[in-house]
């Protein structure tokens, strides 16, 4: 019974944490735009949280840089179970134009497991919403 309630609440109101791991800011403002009046994901219960300890879903933008590598692991470890990761944008998926640079280690999946990829350079706010919804449908079935 309690498990049912937990699952229901997790699906109805996923709390997200946005982490820029070294991206160019474009995906970040598009994610913010998804929270703003036109798209307004807050009306469907998706809330942007300030700390990893409150979050269910980690949204990563940008490739992994040497400097952020340890910080991503730390933020990921601080999140309570069960946790999900969405890689937003071409950089978070594979490194995009920064591929091959001495300071870039590639996509997010090199370091932590990723549940959903949203392609685009940068992604559109509608694509972000679509990605989150698809992740939730995946959860519902599990």
């Amino acid at each position: 019974m309690i498990e049912k309630i937990i699952k229901w609440s997790r699906l109805k109101s996923p709390w997200i944490l946005h982490l820029n791991t070294g991206g160019c800011n474009a995906c970040d403002i598009e994610i913010l735009a998804a929270l703003m009046p036109r798209f307004d994901v807050e009306r469907v219960g998706i809330l942007l949280k300030a700390t990893p300890r409150h979050a269910d879903v980690l949204i990563c933008t940008g490739p992994i840089t040497r400097q952020t590598k340890d910080r991503i692991t730390r933020v990921y470890q601080q999140m309570p179970e069960p946790k999900f990761v969405i890689a937003v944008g071409a950089c978070a998926m594979s490194g995009c134009v920064y591929r091959g640079s001495y300071n870039v280690l590639g996509g997010i999946d090199q370091l932590i497991p990723v549940d959903m990829y949203i392609p685009g350079c940068p992604v559109r706010p509608d694509a972000v919403i679509d990605g989150v919804v698809k992740l939730l449908t995946k959860l519902e079935k599990s």
């Binding site: 840089t65 952020t68 091959g100």
Partner: peptide, 11 residues
Amino acid sequence: LGYNHRGVEKL
């Protein structure tokens, strides 16, 4: 600084 350093100038 340096969390966002991607080595763009080298690229």
